[in-house]
Design a binder for these strands. Structure first.
Length: 423
RNA sequence: GGUGAGGUGGCUGAGUGGUCGAAAGCAGCGCUUUGCUAAAGCGCCGUAGUCCAAAAGGCUACCGAGGGUUCGAAUCCCUCCCUCACCGCCA
C-alpha cells in the first residue's frame, strides 16, 4: 500500500512513478485524493462537534453534582446528534472507500528499474554456466513417464488437469529436493526454518498483496474466510503482522516449505504440458524482514542464496531483472532466476526475488522501533529458493543420459540415495 | 461440541455511568546525589487521525471487534472474535 501522504503531497510524482507500469493509475489517484479531501473535511467538522459535545457533557455533570437544572444543556447536546451521526457514517464510508482504492494501487518501481512493457524487455543481468550439449534432448514428460516417476493420467483422474502425482523414485526425488534445499538455506545461508500452516486468513492475503485484486487466482475455502496458500510468502511474512519487531533481530531470515495452490485462471493452454504450470506445486520460499536502508543489499544477497541452489546442482541459468511493465503488483524491484531446460529449449523461471520495500508492511502494519524511537515500517523481501516442479524438470532434462536414465547431481545424491534413476 | 472464567498501555494489574487516556508496580529514557559495576531521589515515558505553511500547540478517536442505550460509556445491553480451565471427541 502506498502512503496517502505521498499521494497527497506529490500527486504528480506518484503518477509518474506508476506510469511505467502497464496500466494508467492517474484516475485512481485523482479519485483517492478527492475522497481524501472530502474525508478530512468531514472528520474535521465531526471532531469539532465531538469536542463541543464533550465540553457540554462535562458541564452537565457539574450541574447535576450541584443539583442544578441541566435540561437546557442536554437539549443542546441532543441537537448535535443528527449531524454527528451523519458525519460519522460519511467519514467511515469515505475511509473505507479510500482504503479500498489504495489497496488496488501497485507499488512504485524503484527509479533505477528498467522501463519496459513486457518480458522481452527484461535485461539479462548475468549468466552462470553454459547450455549442455545433449543430442535430441527429450522433455521431462517423456523421461519421467518412461522411468515411472509421474503418473499424469491418474493425477487427472483424482484431481483434474494441473495436478501431478509423483510415484516411487519420482516421489523420493521430490522429497530429496525439499530436504536438500532446506538444509542448504538453513545450514549454509543462515535462514531459520519455518513450517507454517497451508491455510491462512483473508487478512494475511491482503497483507502480502494477493487480495483484494487477485482473488480469482486463489483457492478460497470456508466461504472465503480462509485461503490455501499460493506461496509460503503469505504465512511467513504475516508471522509478524501487526507487530513492532525488535530491530536488533534484523535481518530476520526465514526459509519455509509449503505446497503452493494457484488457480492459474486465464492461463489454460499456456505451458500446461508436464510439470511447468500446476495448480499445486512445492516450493521453498525465503523471506526477509529488515530496515529500509538494508533492503537493497538484502535483495542482492537473497538472489545469491537462491542462485546457489542451481550452482550446487550444476545447472546453467541466467538472472534477469524485471522491467517496470513485467513486475508484480507489490514489487519495487525483482530479479528472476531462470534455469536452462534442454527439453523445452528454453529457460524456466524457478525463482523470483523481490524487494517490496514498505508496500507489504503498510498493509499488515509491520513496524520496528527506529533509533529515533519512532515506529517505522519494515521492508520485506522474498524469493523462491526455489520452486520444486520446474527444478525437477531441469534436473531430468539436464541429467538425461543416452540410455534414458537420469544422472543425479552429486550434491543431491546423499538425499536421494543413488547417483542415477533408471528403470 | 458442552460448561465456566476472562480479554485494560511493552509487561503485571486497579478501575462498574461524569475532570479516566486511564491508579499502582515493573521495564525503558533523562537529570541529581552517593560512589567499586549498583542504590536512592526527581522528572519523562502509548498509538493513530486531524487542524495549523511548519514548529510549538490544539482537538478527536482508541480499554478484543462491531453495533446499541445515554446529555455523557473502559464501566450498562446485543452480536461476533479470541484466550484460558474442565468435560467430551480425536491423528
Amino acid at each position: 500500500m502506498l502512503d496517502i501522504r505521498t499521494l497527497r503531497e506529490q500527486p504528480d510524482l506518484a503518477k509518474s512513478r506508476l506510469a511505467s507500469r502497464n496500466a494508467d493509475y492517474s484516475q485512481t489517484i485523482d479519485a483517492i485524493l478527492a475522497i481524501d479531501a472530502d474525508r478530512r473535511a468531514s472528520e474535521t467538522r465531526l471532531q469539532g462537534l465531538q469536542s463541543e459535545r464533550n465540553r457540554l457533557s462535562k458541564e452537565i455533570g457539574k450541574l447535576r453534582a450541584q443539583k442544578q437544572d441541566s435540561a437546557a444543556l442536554e437539549a443542546e447536546v441532543k441537537s448535535l446528534a443528527d449531524e454527528m451521526q451523519a458525519l460519522t457514517e460519511k467519514s467511515n464510508a469515505l475511509s473505507d472507500e479510500q482504503t479500498a482504492l489504495l489497496l488496488v494501487l501497485p507499488n512504485f518501481p524503484q527509479p533505477a528499474v528498467p522501463v519496459g512493457k513486457e518480458a522481452a524487455d527484461n535485461p539479462e543481468i548475468r549468466v552462470h554456466g553454459e547450455k549442455p550439449s545433449i543430442a535430441n534432448p527429450k522433455d521431462h514428460v517423456a523421461l519421467a513417464e518412461a522411468l515411472g516417476l509421474i503418473d499424469p493420467d491418474r493425477a487427472v483422474k483424482i484431481s483434474g488437469s494441473g495436478f501431478s502425482v509423483y510415484m516411487g523414485q519420482g516421489a523420493k526425488l521430490e522429497r530429496a529436493l525439499l530436504n536438500f534445499l532446506l538444509d542448504l538455506h538453513t545450514r549454509d545461508h543462515g535462514y531459520t526454518e519455518v513450517s507454517p500452516p497451508f491455510v491462512v486468513k483473508r487478512d494475511c492475503m491482503v497483507g502480502t498483496g494477493q487480495l483484494p485484486k487477485f482473488e480469482e487466482d486463489m483457492y478460497g475455502i470456508d466461504g472465503g474466510g480462509l485461503f490455501l496458500v499460493p506461496t509460503a510468502e503469505v504465512p511467513v511474512t504475516n508471522l509478524h503482522r501487526e507487530e513492532i519487531v525488535n530491530a536488533a533481530q534484523f535481518p530476520i531470515k526465514y526459509a519455509a516449505y509449503t505446497p503452493c495452490f494457484r488457480r492459474e485462471a486465464g492461463s489454460a493452454g499456456r505451458e500446461t504440458r508436464g510439470l511447468i504450470r500446476m495448480h499445486q506445486f512445492d516450493k521453498i520460499e525465503l523471506v526477509k524482514i529488515c530496515a529500509p536502508e538494508q533492503s537493497a543489499s538484502e535483495l542482492e544477497a537473497l538472489t545469491g542464496d537462491a542462485e546457489r541452489v542451481l550452482q550446487a546442482l550444476g545447472l546453467h541459468y541466467r538472472v534477469i531483472e524485471l522491467c517496470t511493465g513485467d513486475m508484480g503488483f507489490g514489487a519495487a524491484k525483482t530479479y528472476d532466476i531462470e534455469v536452462w531446460a534442454p527439453g523445452q529449449n528454453a529457460y524456466l523461471e524457478v525463482s523470483s526475488c523481490t524487494n517490496f520495500e514498505d508496500f507489504q508492511s503498510r498493509r499488515m502494519n509491520l513496524r520496528f522501533k527506529a533509533e529515533d524511537e519512532k515506529n517505522r515500517f519494515c521492508h520485506t523481501l522474498n524469493g523462491s529458493g526455489t520452486a520444486l516442479a520446474r527444478l525437477y524438470v531441469a534436473l531430468l532434462e539436464n541429467g538425461q543420459q543416452p540410455d534414458g536414465s537420469v544422472h543425479i547431481p552429486a550434491a543431491l545424491q546423499p538425499y536421494f540415495g543413488a547417483s542415477t534413476i533408471s528403470k
